[in-house]
Write a protein that binds this DNA or RNA. Sequence first.
DNA 1: ACAAAAGTGTTATGATTACACCCATGC
DNA 2: GCATGGGTGTAATCATAACACTTTTGT
Lengths: 236, 236
Amino acid sequence: MTSVWSSPERPAFPHQALAVVLQVRGARLHAMLWRRAKEPFAGAWALPGGPLRPDETLGASVGRQLAAKVEVAQLAHLEQLETRSDPHRDPRSRTVATAYLGLIPGDLDPALPEDTAWHPVDALPETAFDHGSIVGSGLERLRAKLSYTNVAFALAPPTFSVAELREVYVAALGYEVAATNLQRVLLRRGVLEPTGEMAASGRAGGRPAALYRFATTTIEVTDPFAVLKPPSTRRR
Amino acid sequence: MTSVWSSPERPAFPHQALAVVLQVRGARLHAMLWRRAKEPFAGAWALPGGPLRPDETLGASVGRQLAAKVEVAQLAHLEQLETRSDPHRDPRSRTVATAYLGLIPGDLDPALPEDTAWHPVDALPETAFDHGSIVGSGLERLRAKLSYTNVAFALAPPTFSVAELREVYVAALGYEVAATNLQRVLLRRGVLEPTGEMAASGRAGGRPAALYRFATTTIEVTDPFAVLKPPSTRRR
DNA sequence: ACAAAAGTGTTATGATTACACCCATGC
DNA sequence: GCATGGGTGTAATCATAACACTTTTGT
């Protein structure tokens, strides 16, 4: 199945797989973008991605395209975000695009191609096509999931102190989070577990921090029912 | 822009827009499906939908295709769900499909074509393609959103007693919900407002129920931070 | 000793569940 | 009067936020 047929009855559309890749760098959340050399949007920044091939799924396609920019193994999480279909989103010709959200742990510093760079999500440069608003969707999704799932495992290093984890949350959420409470919430939910090891205390002294890790490195819902919980089963 | 070009560099794919349309009927949540007459999957039940046209968005396409089955004005809510891209999801030839979730208020009983019928989501008949699992995704999305948004407006009649609303929640969530608490949660959040009117009391007597309506008929997040709320701004 | 950083104890707050009880209506 | 629902009052539970205080380290 290397070719796909089309007819007036079943029109066909070029399809792009795009990725919003996010990473916390220097206490700020950044998105990976590459600078377009050619028109349209020459000089503007675009999401990594490219055409879907005849024999791959969108997920596989995103992985493949991303491999041109970073080592894909470094992506700790990848999920489908949304599909954009405005007929004029690409001025050249109609293209449908499905965006994914990818997350990279903060301890990695993947080598990037010449044209590719990290940009703080709260100060994006001029973006190409509808990519700016797609980054917005990715951000929104990440923020929502940080609060009721364990996704933070995909942004944090493998092992970390609560203070470091707090930085990740603050960078991603964009507001202050108290380390004390963060620790307790995540421990009670069983999201974090102590490694038993300690971090060296800083240059200025201070009690050395205990190191933690995420109990799971697969996304899981940790706070299932925001409300309207099913009736409690226990009798008293 | 009535035609779309394709090349080995930019392969094109037929694209379907599908809809998971849900409604509470007789205290059970149902999905709208039509019975396929032709192969493949002759006799199996499929989601309404069809090919994306060259000049429409996916959202518009879903609306148009759905119009062939129900009066679209009856859909109180429609949102994009996900895009399926398995190369073999359609055995005839590769097709990408984007599914939407549509909700119809319980007081309506739209006329359906001959081949189309409602099926309880907890007892679906044999389904075509990957449509069964797409219904599953829709259900999951609905259940999650019932708990932190006001989506229930799209399943409930315009005006209702708390007991009726409770039925909607029970049918959609699949577990018991106490009317007392449901009322208080939704009132406190400002999701419901009293109409001032009363329902006639039933044949067997009983206190007449007060009628309520949803304050908004647009989806809104009503329980924003499951946890990790931003610090409170008020000083004490 | 003292400053710095981490972590624990403790209280307050707020939302929600559970459940007893009171209210309004038809027969 | 009494059965049938509907609605309110209230206590118990639980998760979280806030903050004081203790612990452990470097200088």
